[in-house]
């Protein structure tokens, strides 16, 4: 006899429930619409198998934790929490958080930087059915006509046209907690300069994930790449014409249906040649 959720079940029933559990774990990516980077949770990653042109589909912690012997010397979970959230040091000064969620392509291969070894030897692909960024609009002061200092933030969901799942360049690093011996694989999404569309959506930073074609994704994972080619692929910009997007509810992260389109009549359209043309909501959905 076995127990599941503290309830007595037969061996057969226990195995059935564990089987469902295993399937859910393997497909965790598909059961969640929204993975919030700042949660430092698990995300699905295509991890190349060494020596052959094949990959495993694994879960990794999103938020790269560098080798603990290198700066910023994250040795324990407590260190990781402090570094990721920021902390007040012994002199009372607040040390800004370092989340390592995104690896800036232009800095990827700089010597002694945290991402270099991973970019050279541990490249991976992070599949996505859509990602989220906020467009900052500064309303005009009705009296002075000048932009207000505080922006109104509109969330967008961005996808690749005609792709249920698309590929983002990533790098990964195994990290071990010195306190517990726990070993985890952690990853970061490589980012590049925003294209015409993304520079208007993510207009505060003008960056975007490095979204790769099938061929480039394959090369990123399995190619014997020199530094020049790694840098070229890492900086690759998907053409703006290949993107599709729509706006979401401002509180979409807490919504029962976080990917539902919400239209803001006063929001200026994205300025692209020929005018804004959008894919109707739902057309690109993974599960439609």
């Amino acid at each position: 006899m076995c127990y599941y959720n503290a309830q007595k079940v037969t061996h057969a029933e226990f195995l059935r429930l564990k089987g469902i559990e295993k399937t859910l774990k393997e497909h965790d990516f598909f059961t969640r619409y929204v993975i919030v980077g700042f949660d430092f949770g698990q995300t699905t990653v295509l991890k190349p198998i060494e020596g052959i042109e094949d990959f495993e589909i694994v879960q990794m912690e999103w938020g790269f934790l560098p080798d603990s012997l290198k700066w910023p010397f994250i040795e324990t979970r407590e260190d990781a929490f402090k570094i990721r959230r920021g902390y007040t040091d012994a002199r009372g000064k607040f040390v800004q958080p370092l989340n390592f969620l995104n690896a800036v392509s232009e800095e990827l291969l700089i010597r002694n930087k945290v991402y270099r070894e991973a970019a050279l030897h541990r490249r991976c692909i992070i599949p996505s059915s859509g990602f989220y960024d906020w467009r900052h609009i500064f309303p005009l002061n009705k009296r002075t006509g000048q932009p207000l200092k505080t922006a109104v933030k509109y969330p967008y969901r961005v996808m690749v046209k005609n792709k249920e799942v698309f590929w983002m360049a990533g790098i990964w690093q195994q990290w071990t907690d010195a306190d517990t011996g726990e070993t985890v694989d952690t990853c970061a999404v490589v980012t590049t300069e925003a294209n015409l569309v993304m520079s208007q959506i993510h207009n505060s930073k003008k960056r975007m994930p490095t979204m790769l074609t099938d061929d480039l994704a394959w090369e990123w994972m399995f190619g014997k790449l020199d530094e020049k080619r790694i840098s070229e692929i890492a900086r690759w910009q998907i053409p703006w014409q290949d993107l599709t997007y729509y706006t979401l509810a401002k509180d979409f992260l807490n919504s029962g249906d976080p990917i539902k389109e919400v239209v803001y009549p006063d929001l200026p359209p994205i300025d692209i040649p020929g005018g804004e043309s959008k894919t109707p909501q739902g057309q690109m959905e993974l599960f439609s």
Binding site: M1, V9, E13, L17
Partner: peptide, 8 residues
């Protein structure tokens, strides 16, 4: 995630 289970 919830499922029907046959408890003893």
């Amino acid at each position: 995630v919830i499922a029907r289970a046959r408890f003893e």
